[in-house]
């Protein structure tokens, strides 16, 4: 009998304790009503992205002169794990330097690892803060030189935001031979300024010094045999 009463009292205690805990939970949840929502109104309001955000790839130009900074060294093409970069360059017969004809990046393949931006000696290829690349066809995700090249203002912004050293203004005489393929004028201007001399580089991306930059002078279409199939993620 006493057992029964005791267990009944215990049961009541248990039930009240449970109810109290449930009440505590409900109250805590209800209290969240008074806190500001954390949702971002994304399409209406662009998110604030940090400067080093790894978004769409793009090619910078010299913010002052507007010349393309690519020297066709092909380091990015070689380092890309997905093989999504394709550089077409020609060795100029006059200056014996590489002239950039086209620069293609397949953003459908790219996994935005940012390795190409790390190896670039001239801070030409960068990750922008743009991530809105959705498109209707796969082929439209392949960006060519014209689509990749940033304007002078944009380049200036990224050079400042990413704290990259500005390229030295080169008062080189523009001996621009007409580049047939691309309509992009920066590409045409870029050729004679094939500045192999590395700029002072900060922390990570130091000047290439290993074997990697030697074969850059050869004109090979693509196909670096060192890596295999693109990763399937």
């Amino acid at each position: 009998m006493f057992n029964l009463i005791g267990s009944a009292i215990n049961g009541v205690k248990h039930a009240l304790g449970g109810l109290y805990q449930v009440k505590r939970g409900l109250e805590t949840v209800a209290m969240h009503t008074w806190r500001e929502p954390t949702t971002e109104a994304y399409p209406d309001k662009a998110p604030e992205l940090p400067p080093h955000f790894r978004g769409r790839l793009a090619l910078t130009v010299n913010p002052e002169t507007g010349e393309n900074l690519c020297i066709s060294c092909r380091q990015c093409e070689r380092v890309c794990p997905d093989k999504c970069i394709e550089i077409t360059a020609n060795k100029s017969t006059e200056t014996n330097k590489l002239e950039l004809i086209d620069f293609k990046i397949d953003h459908g393949l790219c996994m935005f690892c940012g390795l190409c931006t790390e190896v670039c000696p001239t801070y030409c290829i960068i990750n922008t803060n743009d991530f809105e690349m959705a498109d209707y066809t796969r082929s439209s995700l392949i960006y060519d030189l014209k689509k990749l090249t940033l304007t002078q203002e944009e380049s200036a912004y990224y050079f400042a935001a990413k704290e990259m050293p500005l390229p030295k203004p080169k008062p080189a005489k523009p001996a621009a031979p007409a580049a047939g393929a691309a309509a992009a004028k920066p590409a045409a201007e870029a050729k004679p300024t094939a500045t192999v001399s590395p700029k002072p580089a900060p922390e990570s991306a130091k000047a290439p010094e290993t074997t990697a930059d030697k074969p850059a002078k050869e004109v090979e279409k693509k196909e670096s045999p060192s890596t295999d199939t693109p990763s399937v993620n």
Partner: peptide, 16 residues
């Protein structure tokens, strides 16, 4: 104790 919200900075707009 019940843990109460500690920043009541206001969600008045949403509640409205």
């Amino acid at each position: 104790t019940v843990v109460r919200g500690d920043h009541f900075s206001g969600n008045i707009a949403e509640i409205r």
